[in-house]
Design a protein around this nucleic acid. Structure first.
Lengths: 342, 342
DNA sequence: AATCAGATTGGCAGCGCTGCCAACGCCTGT
DNA sequence: ACAGGCGTTGGCAGCGCTGCCAATCTGATT
């Protein structure tokens, strides 16, 4: 059976609120009140409206509702979320956390994916603002000047998530990536590693990874054991990229005793390289990741990595969007997972 | 600086189209035409409008636009997408594919996540329909009766993606999961494996995995080597779940010579178990996955698995949403990747 | 100079719903 | 019996934008 309406069909008008009102024998505003369970009405009215809604198969038109309700407090039950990527499981995790909190408060979300492109982010901000959301959740602190101007002009709550290293516009929820890098370096140094390399992915785009690396290098240098070598894979992070990049890195510097990866995906690839080349981990080479993916814990040797509160960041971001109050920075921290690879 | 508007502020009204019209010294409909680049207008008018828009920082109100434009052809440039989960990378991939195609055609998407819960899917369908989208993309062919009724009543294009094993409502884009199961079994049988087990995740919810298993079992039985044993991990698929489940499975049936996993995540966990227990793969135990994740190819021994056209499914689903035409089933097929584990 | 097709433009009625307010009952209290 | 209070209810003006149509302007044609 075809659900699609053929072109020549008599353009069946959809059921509207006023149809329901007529069918139930009550006024439009009464139906509206019953449907939103707001204001007062009798049980009898409620039943009649419910019956009419069910019988006619009425579906409220949220566009009209939001338009009419705009300007008022209860207006927009909608938020926009912009993330840089869907390929990295980190961002779906943030979405899950945010969605859970949003659902609870009866909010809908509209999502945009920027592909790590600041220009595209700016365009998305415009697109999402045109939905007149109650608030916007964006990723990171770095935006184009145009994007910042739009965000400022919107007058709505803005939450920047994941990163706390820098100045935020309004609410900032996340952790310090720089500090993650420093702690990672400290851990490796503490375990006696001295000839340390780095394997990362396209760092010009993933600014958070760049900040981790910066913090990592700082601490290494301060300790007198500066980063020995680095290998940056072009494109997004992946196990395949990590494996290939580690191979190239070791070809140039076979003497390394530890490698810091931009994240667990890359580290897992590195681990696979070690398995394939029979490089003892961590005896011959230590591996350190970032993100504490589920997969990292399932490895024969659990990966040494850093757990980030992804779901929580999403949840807190969503919660704050609804609240009012002054701008603030909420640092949710992170946790170093010792593992067995470093 | 605070972007958030304090409560007591004089409720700055946002710039509207009529503000722009006044500022540019033209009529409202002229501004509307220029902004949508539709109809005809002079270069001079266009410049004046553009200037006014920039000066006032005008952001069109899509709610109003869609409401006004509803009923007409060009009305809704919006589609709804419902996926069961964000944890499994498969679904973000579908989204990416769909988003790419949607962007190209100037569509926006609203996304809902059902958590593999049919009731929740029904609720989401209602929520998304209330946006009056031009079409809806849903996952799988199984829906509650209520959901089917709503979809039918909506009168819009419906695309059901991923699965072609069953009757669709309108457009169906995907591949046969049952057939995937059969081909997987055929491959294992062809390589001489005879004592074959299965490791899966919560199959009551992931209906596609159940179909693959059904096809798999059929072929095994037809060949006279029925499935020897199965182990179902509760909850969603993950490497950790796969690893633990394989361990339990082998505890009961140490004599198995091959295991079919519900997907690559689970298979990767199984592989880790084998590494940790020094079980030779595929000599002592063969492993077979599903989905051809990037990670499967990066393993020391590439995983034997099945590549599914995820991006393409998303893209085709999005494309078809815009086109009219009769209902149809589009089978995009899949490809068996031999790998080195089976 | 009058005419006419085509390009440009503005006015205005909705799209479907919500907020506001006046209008009802109906039940106390005096 | 009447005023007052409260729970209910309906009417109606928008929300900001688009579609439609008539008005105006342009230049070329007869």
């Amino acid at each position: 059976m075809n659900v699609h309406e053929p072109e020549h069909a008599p353009e069946r008008r959809l059921v509207t609120l006023s149809d329901v009102a007529r069918a139930a024998g009550v006024g439009e505003s009464t139906v509206s009140r019953v449907l939103r369970n707001q204001g007062s009405f009798s049980k009898r009215t409620q039943d009649r409206v419910a019956e009419a809604v069910a019988r006619l198969g009425y579906v409220p038109n949220r566009l009209a509702g939001m338009l009419a309700g705009s300007g008022t407090t209860a207006g927009a039950k909608l938020v926009g979320i912009i993330i840089p990527s869907l390929t990295n499981i980190v961002f779906p995790d943030l979405l899950r956390g945010a969605n859970a909190a949003l659902d609870r408060d009866g909010f809908q979300s509209v999502i945009g994916v920027s592909d790590y492109d600041p220009e595209r982010e700016e365009a998305l901000i415009g697109a999402l603002l045109s939905w007149r959301p109650a608030g916007l959740i964006v990723t990171g602190l770095e935006h184009t000047a145009g994007a910042v101007a739009r965000l400022r002009a919107s007058g709505i709550r803005i939450v920047e998530m994941i990163d706390t290293d820098g100045a935020g516009l309004d609410i900032v929820v996340g952790f310090s990536n720089r500090s993650v890098g420093r702690d990672s370096a400290r851990h490796l140094l503490g375990r006696g590693y001295r000839r340390i390399g780095y394997v990362g992915h396209d760092i010009g785009r993933d600014l958070r990874a760049a900040k981790r690396l910066a913090g990592f290098c700082e601490t290494l240098s301060e300790a007198g054991h500066p980063l020995a070598e680095r290998e940056i894979a072009p494109g997004p992070s992946s196990a395949a990229a990590g494996r290939a990049a580690l191979e190239r890195l070791l070809a140039r510097r076979p003497d390394l005793d530890a490698v810091y990866f931009s994240n667990d995906d890359m580290a897992l690839g590195g681990y696979f390289h070690c398995l394939a080349q029979r490089i003892a981990v961590p005896g011959r080479l230590a591996l350190f990741g970032f993100n504490a993916l589920d997969i990292a814990a399932a490895m024969p040797q659990p990966l040494t990595t850093i757990r980030t509160p992804r779901l929580e960041i999403g949840a807190v971001a969503a919660e704050r969007l609804g609240a009012d109050g002054p701008p603030e920075v909420i640092d949710l921290g992170y946790e170093l997972i010792p593992g067995a690879t470093a």
